[in-house]
């Protein structure tokens, strides 16, 4: 009964009339003399699942941080669901669910307390029920009263996923979400992303695991040196070519 709510996309997000979930035009990022992103133009429609691939230092994390409003692009524009982070940051933030390298969790609070804190920050209406739901979803219902400090990395990552979905975001930004997950965790992740997409939600994720990227995503974007060098549907992808570019072969 709670599945529709969990999938998180706002009911008014009709695919035909909705603005793109993510739209960037010519985004660059520069730190002093060093350029990180070199003109990223990317449009992601509602319901799409995009895997951002690329070698280390290609700018995947920087791009996600810019989409997440944590970093300002040096030039270019960003829109999330039609809102611009530099004008309407709170509208953007309330639509985003983010999982990053760091869990954003507090070690000495329990799983439930962490989620209750973020529920308050995101002004989630039915917090208690929603927390039950997401904990159930990531398979941590039995650990809700345990402190995060006692969790394994994989469990923390699952809780981070729960945290990201808590406020029913329409766009999920996942930075190497599979990094600490075991097989069961990866399966949970894949299912969550799939269900999110089925409800019209969008996912952009980075990963080093090409297999996972192709399994979870329906579109692959390859970044190299801060540029998009390939953008193709996952179905008609030359895996050997990608692996060559990533230096896996």
């Amino acid at each position: 009964m709670s599945d529709t709510r969990l999938r998180g996309a706002p009911p008014d997000l009709a695919p035909t009339s909705a603005p793109p979930s993510v739209r960037t035009v010519g985004v660059t990022k520069r730190y002093g003399r060093r350029g990180v992103l070199r003109g990223i133009t990317l449009t992601v429609q509602p319901g799409e699942r995009v895997a951002l691939l690329g070698p280390n230092g290609a700018g995947k994390t920087t791009l996600l941080r810019i989409l997440a409003t944590l970093s300002r692009p040096t030039s270019g524009t960003v829109e999330i669901a039609g809102f611009r982070p530099d004008r309407d940051a709170q509208a953007v933030r309330s639509r985003l669910g983010v999982v990053a390298h760091q869990s954003y969790l507090y070690d000495d609070l329990t799983a439930e307390e962490n989620l209750r804190f973020y529920a308050r920050m995101y002004a989630v209406e039915d917090a208690a029920a929603r927390i039950d739901e997401v904990l159930e979803r990531v398979g941590l219902a039995g650990w809700r009263r345990e402190r995060v400090r006692t969790f394994s990395r994989g469990m923390q990552q699952r809780l981070a996923l729960a945290r990201a979905m808590l406020h029913r975001p329409s766009v999920l930004l996942l930075d190497e979400p599979d990094s600490a997950l075991d097989r069961a965790g990866v399966r949970i992740l894949a299912r969550l992303v799939e269900e999110h997409a089925a409800a019209g939600g969008t996912t952009v994720l980075t990963t080093h695991d090409l297999g996972l990227g192709l399994e979870v995503a329906d579109r692959v974007v390859l970044l190299q040196q801060g540029q998009v060098v390939l953008d193709a549907p996952a179905a008609d992808l030359d895996v050997a070519e990608i692996e060559r570019r990533l230096g896996y072969r």
């Binding site: 520069r30 002093g32 003399r33 060093r34 350029g35 070199r38 040196q225």
Partner: peptide, 9 residues
């Protein structure tokens, strides 16, 4: 320096 590096790249 930034532009030079960018062009070279």
């Amino acid at each position: 320096h930034y532009r030079l590096y960018e062009r070279q790249l």
